[in-house]
């Protein structure tokens, strides 16, 4: 076991409740995320895991509760502001830009850092080009890291599923986020692909010190990777703790295995 570098609380979820009409999706959820840790959210289908991520990055606005990010209570924000604050994510059902190449997709991840204006981009030579080249270099490093050099110029719509997942991870990484939200990055993968993806997740966490919030159904992967785990079930928080604690929690066992009534 290598040395973990876990810092202070970077994001705190306090008493979040979210409803769509009459349906209560999240009910009084509270947990915190520490700098540099791998934090997993698990639970059966429909437990509200993806909704939780959507609350964290500002897509859904909860009716109750607050989010404290980097010590500040977060006001209601627009969807595109999360990226500026350093929150990037991948999606359960891949949300890549299908008509664009791998390279361009990952380049979009750096849109926050592109500063040249419309006129400079229209002329291209000069500032815009310098900027393009600078970011291209970073993106190429990400491409090397994820071992996707060969598909650099392929439109992502033509790539197999596993590769698309990887490109999506690359796009999120390109933003150099504080927190990386991964929504089922290994869903539908075979063992080998899962191993690759697990390695990437660990490397990202280790090399860049990125805090990772992970939703995953494969319990083996979750228990191996995570520092701490939150368990949700039908919008209710069942447990929160280290993988071992969660594994032995009676409520969790009941939710996963079912109880005789």
């Amino acid at each position: 076991m290598f040395q973990r570098n876990i810092g202070d609380v970077i994001l705190e979820v306090q008493g979040i409740s979210l409803s769509f009409g009459a349906m209560r999706v999240l009910n009084n959820i509270s947990f915190d995320i520490r700098q540099g840790e791998i934090r997993s959210i698990i639970g059966p289908n429909g437990a509200g895991k993806s909704s939780m991520l959507n609350v964290i990055n500002g897509v859904y606005h909860p009716q109750e509760g607050t989010i404290i990010f980097q010590g500040e209570r977060r006001a209601e924000m627009k969807v595109h502001e999360a990226a500026a604050q350093g929150i990037a994510r991948t999606f359960q059902n891949i949300a890549l830009f299908k008509g664009m190449s791998t390279l361009d997709n990952i380049m979009t991840g750096r849109n926050q850092m592109m500063k040249s204006n419309l006129l400079q981009q229209a002329i291209y030579w000069g500032k815009a080009q310098k900027e393009e080249l600078k970011h291209r270099k970073v993106v190429e490093e990400i491409i090397d890291f994820l071992e996707i050099q060969a598909i650099r110029k392929t439109p992502v719509g033509r790539l197999p599923y596993g590769m698309q997942k990887r490109v999506e991870l690359g796009r999120a990484l390109a933003a150099e986020p504080e927190i990386l939200l991964l929504d089922e990055p290994m869903a539908g993968m075979n063992v080998e692909e899962k191993e690759d993806m697990s390695r990437f997740v660990l490397d990202i966490n280790d090399e860049f010190g990125t805090t990772i919030v992970l939703i995953e159904h494969d319990m083996g992967v979750v228990m191996d990777l995570s520092d701490r785990v939150v368990v949700l079930d039908y919008g209710v928080q069942l447990a929160d703790g280290s993988p071992d604690e969660v594994r032995n929690n009676q409520a969790v066992i009941d939710a996963y295995l079912g109880v005789a009534h």
């Binding site: 949300a95 830009f97 299908k98 664009m100 361009d104 979009t108 991840g109 393009e132």
Partner: peptide, 22 residues
């Protein structure tokens, strides 16, 4: 350039484009 990629991102999947900060 960047603006072209942003346009195509909005075209291909607007909600994802917004989440990555466009």
């Amino acid at each position: 350039s960047n603006i072209g990629r942003e346009w195509m991102a909005v075209r291909d999947m607007d909600i994802a484009a917004e989440i990555i900060g466009i």
